[in-house]
């Protein structure tokens, strides 16, 4: 069953990647045309293909990274309803990014550093706020959503005030891979891969956290250290992706749940299936906005599509969790 799900998702990943490379406002490429365009890099078709390949890579990085971050957060906080967007980590990183741009800093390394600091301090702040509300699954959501709104508000005010000093803010504010620069895409993919590897390395300890802190501690797990490391890795993934594509909503919630629906709830199983589902979700959303834009090339942001999946899911999960007394 799990193997079938895995095979299916890999198949979907290939299918959607192909669609992402073949479809777009320029026109669709047949497999033969794709091969031809690949060979003649200097032609117009070659240029369009180059652009689509990097865009596809960016979507995969965004999807896989956010799915992994969402899964890790859900496990870390023992709360199935959270994702980096809902917890405000994305908006915190976005605010930090906008501040960096507003200061005129055009060095990618500093972007990543500032978004990382923005992301991890938001996560810390959310936990503090939630603790003040009486730590529960719902209070975590409330704290995250309020912080997220606050940071988005400040970001919009900054953009309004600083105008043209902030390139791409409007499309980027709601998530887009349409303007992913190859150099940024490459370094962001590296950084989020690093975060993913840290999470993978810590997965046995994360798994044991589910049994409760005392049991974990009895197994020799340094609970606090694991928590901090996972938080750092999650923030690293999310914040670098924000520098690439802006705050893309809900993939961190949708992808792990899609993986659960098709492949079952085992944590180790999800570690492989969730990122693939995330990449599929992001690619599907990106291809959809290209098709919706049609010939005109005017495209919607990614969150416009992902929230159509994420928001109903969040509602459904919340009602279900309430039924079983999880909130």
């Amino acid at each position: 069953m799990y193997l079938a799900a895995l095979l299916l998702s890999v198949l979907l990943l290939f299918l959607f990647s192909y669609a992402s490379i073949a479809l777009g406002p320029f026109g669709s490429f047949s497999p033969a045309e794709l091969l031809k365009a690949l060979q003649e890099g200097d032609s117009l078709e070659g240029a369009v293909l180059h652009y689509r390949l990097w865009r596809t890579a960016a979507a995969i990085a965004v999807g896989a990274g956010l799915a992994m971050a969402g899964l890790a957060l859900q496990r870390l906080l023992n709360n199935p309803l959270v994702d980096p967007y809902i917890l405000g980590i994305s908006s915190g990183s976005a605010l930090a990014y906008v501040i960096t741009l507003a200061l005129g800093i055009n060095i990618p390394v500093l972007w990543y550093l500032s978004t990382f600091l923005g992301g991890i301090s938001t996560l810390a702040l959310v936990l503090l706020l939630a603790a003040a509300l009486g730590l529960s699954n719902l209070s975590l959501l409330v704290a995250g959503v309020s912080l997220s709104y606050m940071f988005s508000g400040v970001t919009i005010v900054l953009i309004q005030l600083l105008g043209d000093k902030i390139p791409m803010a409007v499309a980027w504010l709601f998530g887009t891979v349409a303007y992913a620069r190859p150099d940024v895409t490459a370094s962001v993919a590296f950084l989020s891969l690093l975060g993913i590897l840290i999470i993978l390395a810590l997965s046995p300890q994360l798994e044991s956290l589910l049994l409760g802190e005392e049991v974990s501690a009895a197994h020799g797990v340094k609970v606090e250290a694991v928590r901090v490391m996972v938080a750092v890795a999650t923030s690293l993934i999310v914040s670098s992706l924000v520098a690439l594509a802006g705050p893309v909503g809900f993939i961190g919630l949708v992808a792990p749940w899609l993986a659960r629906f098709v492949g079952g709830a085992g944590f180790y199983r999800l570690l492989l299936l969730a990122p693939i589902m995330g990449a599929v979700t992001a690619l599907g959303a990106d291809v959809t906005i290209r098709l919706l834009g049609g010939q005109s090339g005017a495209e919607l942001p990614l969150t416009a599509i992902t929230s159509l999946m994420g928001a109903p899911l969040l509602f459904y999960l919340t009602t279900k969790a309430r039924e079983v007394g999880g909130l």
């Binding site: 320029f26 117009l44 369009v48 349409a178 834009g293 005109s296 495209e299």
Partner: peptide, 15 residues
């Protein structure tokens, strides 16, 4: 047409 004012399409510009 190469897209909108805030969301120009790189592909269409290349075209």
């Amino acid at each position: 047409i190469v897209g909108g004012f805030v969301n120009p399409s790189v592909e269409k510009i290349l075209e």
